[in-house]
Design a protein around this nucleic acid. Structure first.
Length: 590
DNA sequence: TCTCACACCTTTGAAGTGG
DNA sequence: CCACTTCAAAGGTGTGAGA
C-alpha cells in the first residue's frame, strides 16, 4: 500500500497526504482488480457475513509523525511493567454498520524474520528471530461499541502497552527486544444470534508504523524525536537543561569554571575582580549566568543560548547534546523555531480532525465510484507492484525502515527540522474512551493540513462508572488464564464479550480494565489466496496482510484452531474452541 | 542487553470556592 | 447547582548507573 501503487491504480486522483486509508473490500475484489475491472460491492449476493459487504476503511492518524519516526527507524521501548507506544496508534474507521456492534483490538505482528542489532549508527540484521510469541490482543476499552461510535471519533490505542515480560498478566502486548513489529488492527463484529450475517472479521496492518522493540533506545535521533513530541518527556527538552540533575552538575562545574575564571581574571587583570558586596561572585544565579555564556562555548548550551555553530565545539557529555552536535551543517541549515517544524504535531492536530481520504473525496459511502477506486487502490495496490516483501528492506543494510508512499511525501531529511522544535508543541494523544490522557493542546492550525481535515467533535468524556460493576464481574469470572497455560483465543473473547453484552456493557472500565487474550492465527493467506501467491510461506512468515483481510469469524476460528493443532495437537472441534468451556476468563487488567 | 531508581513532567480528579 | 480554581496523587517519560 504505497502511494505509487495507488497512483497506478487511481490515475490522477488527488491523494490525501494525511492518514492513509486501509480500505477493505469483499473477497472478490482481488479478482476484479486482477481482471482490471472495477470492483462493485453492490453485486454481492449470498449469505456472506455483513462485514464482508462493507467498505470498511481505516486510516492511521498522525501519519506525519509516524513518517518522521519511520525515516529514522522507529524504536519502541519495552519494559517489564509495560511501556506505552509513542507515537501511539490512532485510527479513523469508516464504512462500518452504524448499528452493529464491533470489537476493535490491536496486536503486534512480526515485520520480518530477523533479529536486529544496533551497530554504531544503524540497524543491522543479527540473525534469525526468536520463537514467535503467542499473540496478545489489546482490546480497545470501548469494545464492544456500535459502528456509529467507532466512526464518530478517531480510535486511539494509546493505552496499549508493550512489554518483554512473557509472564505478565496485566494486559500487555509481549514482544521480543530487537525485533521488528508492526501494529495490526482487528475489527470484529460481535456475533448476533438474530443476525446470521454478523460475526465478520477484518484486520488491517500498518507497515508505516513498524518499529523495533528495544529495552533502551539505540538511536539518539529517535530519543530526540520522542522528547520533542511526547508531552510526558517535556522535562528532557532543551537538551535536558532544565533538569535538576543537569542543573546540579552544571552548578558544580560552573562553580569550578567560575573559580577558574576568577583566577584567570585575577591573573590577567591584576586583581580586578567583579565583586558582589565584599566577596567574589559565587552565588548560583550569578554562576549560572557565567556558565551560560561559557556553556554555549562548551556546548552545554544553557537554555536560550544555544548556538547553531556547534560543530566546532568539544563533545558534550550529554548524549543528546552530542547527537545535536553531530548534526553538523545539515542541522544548522534547518529552519528554526516552531514555524520551522512545519508543524504542528499531527498527532495533536489530528485529534480534532477527520482527515481521511475517505470522508473528503473518495470514501464516503455515498460516493461509490470514487470510494471504490480509492478503496480498490488502497487495498489492491500491493498486488500489482512487486515491492519487496516487508522483510526485505533491511537486507539492504539500511538503517531506516521502508517508507511506504514515499513519492507523496515531502522529503524528510535524516535530521528533520523537528529537532529544533521548541519546548512547545508536544504531541498529545487523544483518548476518546474517557478523558484524554494526552489532552490536546491548543495550537495554531496547520495550514496545509487544514485543507484536508474535517473537524470532528471532541469525544465525550466517559465516566468511570460507564461499565456497571456487575458487568465487569461477569466478564472477569473466576480464574484468569496464565500465559503458560492455554491462551485465550479470539473466540473466547468474543464469546465473553458477546455474553456480556446482555449485561449492558458499553465499554470496559476506563481504569485500564483490558480484556486480553491470546491467539495464534499467524499463518498468512487464510482467506486470500492471492496473498499466498505474493508471499510464499516462510519459516516464520511475516504477516501477509498489508491490506485488510476479511475473515468470516467461523473461518477465522477454524484457522486459528488449525494453527494450534500443529503445536498443541489438542483441538479437534472445528467450531468450538475447547478452551471456551474451561470457564477461564479473559485477562482483565484491574 | 537489560533492569532499576530517579527526576521531571502531564494528566486526572477530588476538594474548595464563589456566583 | 454550576463553573472555575487549586492541589495532590497517579502515572508516563528518558536518563544513567550498574548488573
Amino acid at each position: 500500500m504505497y502511494l505509487h501503487e495507488e497512483r497506478l491504480l487511481c490515475g490522477d486522483y488527488p491523494l490525501n497526504s494525511q492518514p492513509r486509508n486501509y480500505g477493505n473490500c469483499p473477497p472478490d475484489w482481488k479478482d476484479a482488480v486482477l481482471r482490471g475491472q472495477s470492483w462493485n460491492s453492490g453485486v454481492k449476493v449470498g449469505c456472506e457475513p455483513e462485514l464482508s459487504a462493507l467498505q470498511v476503511r481505516v486510516s492511521l492518524q498522525g501519519r506525519e509523525l509516524w513518517e518522521q519516526f519511520g525515516d529514522i527507524g522507529t524504536e519502541m521501548l519495552i519494559t517489564k511493567t509495560g511501556r506505552r507506544m509513542f507515537p501511539s496508534c490512532r485510527v479513523t474507521v469508516t464504512g462500518l454498520n452504524p448499528q452493529a456492534k464491533y470489537v476493535l483490538m490491536m496486536d503486534m505482528v512480526s515485520f520480518d524474520d530477523d533479529k536486529y542489532k544496533w551497530s554504531r549508527d544503524r540497524w543491522e540484521v543479527s540473525g534469525m528471530t526468536e520463537p514467535h510469541l503467542p499473540n496478545r490482543f489489546f482490546i480497545h476499552p470501548d469494545s464492544p461499541s456500535l459502528g456509529e461510535r467507532w466512526m464518530q471519533y478517531p480510535v486511539s490505542f494509546h493505552k496499549l502497552k508493550l512489554t518483554n515480560n512473557t509472564l505478565n498478566s496485566n494486559g500487555l502486548v509481549v514482544l521480543h527486544s530487537m525485533h521488528k513489529y508492526q501494529p495490526r488492527l482487528h475489527i470484529v463484529q460481535s456475533p448476533d444470534p438474530y443476525n446470521p450475517l454478523s460475526g465478520g472479521y477484518l484486520r488491517f496492518t500498518f507497515p508505516e508504523a513498524a518499529f523495533i522493540a528495544v529495552t533502551a533506545y539505540q538511536n539518539s535521533e529517535i530519543t530526540k524525536l520522542k522528547i520533542d513530541n511526547n508531552p510526558f518527556a517535556k522535562g528532557f527538552r532543551d537538551n535536558g537543561l532544565n533538569r535538576k540533575r543537569f542543573r546540579e552538575k552544571e552548578g558544580q562545574s560552573s562553580k569550578k569554571l567560575n573559580e577558574r575564571q576568577l583566577q584567570m581574571e585575577l591573573k590577567s587583570s591584576n586583581g580586578i575582580v567583579t565583586y558582589r558586596g565584599s566577596r567574589p561572585v559565587e552565588s548560583d544565579d550569578e554562576a549560572d549566568v557565567i556558565v551560560s555564556s561559557c556553556s554555549s562555548g562548551n556546548s552545554y548550551g544553557a537554555a536560550g543560548s544555544r548556538t547553531d555553530d556547534i560543530t566546532s565545539l568539544p563533545a558534550a557529555p550529554n548524549p543528546l547534546i552530542s547527537a545535536f552536535m553531530n548534526w553538523g551543517a545539515a542541522a544548522a541549515a534547518l529552519p528554526c523555531g516552531q514555524e520551522g517544524w512545519g508543524v504542528l504535531d499531527p498527532m495533536t492536530h489530528n485529534t480534532h480532525t477527520y482527515n481521511t481520504l475517505t470522508t473528503r473525496d473518495y470514501g464516503s459511502p455515498g460516493q461509490h465510484n470514487e470510494a471504490r477506486h480509492t478503496g480498490l487502490s488502497n487495498v489492491a495496490s500491493p498486488l500489482f507492484l512487486p515491492y519487496p516483501p516487508l522483510g526485505q528492506t533491511h537486507h539492504l543494510g539500511s538503517v531506516g525502515f521502508r517508507r511506504p508512499q514515499a513519492q507523496s511525501r515531502k522529503p524528510v531529511g535524516p535530521h528533520p527540522p523537528h529537532h529544533q522544535r521548541g519546548p512547545s508543541g508536544p504531541a498529545p494523544e487523544l483518548s476518546h474512551s474517557h478523558t484524554s490522557d494526552h489532552q490536546p493542546q491548543q495550537q495554531q492550525p496547520e495550514p496545509h493540513q487544514a485543507e484536508f481535515d474535517y473537524p470532528l467533535p471532541l469525544p465525550p468524556k466517559v465516566s468511570r462508572m460507564h461499565l456497571p460493576e456487575s458487568a465487569l464481574r461477569s466478564l472477569e469470572m473466576s480464574s484468569s488464564p496464565s500465559v503458560s497455560g492455554s491462551p485465550w483465543s479470539l473466540t473466547d473473547m468474543l464469546n465473553r464479550i458477546h455474553s456480556s453484552e446482555g449485561s449492558g456493557i458499553n465499554s470496559v472500565s476506563p481504569q485500564g480494565k483490558l480484556l486480553q487474550a491470546q491467539a495464534q492465527y499467524e499463518r498468512p493467506g487464510l482467506e486470500l489466496g492471492v496473498n499466498r501467491e505474493l508471499w510464499p510461506p516462510q519459516p516464520n512468515p511475516p504477516l501477509p496482510d498489508h491490506e485488510p483481510e476479511y475473515l468470516p469469524l467461523h473461518n477465522m476460528m477454524r484457522y486459528h484452531q488449525n494453527s494450534l493443532i500443529g503445536s498443541a495437537g489438542l483441538l479437534r472441534d472445528s467450531h468450538v474452541d475447547p478452551r471456551v468451556p474451561s470457564c477461564k476468563a479473559p485477562m482483565l487488567d484491574l
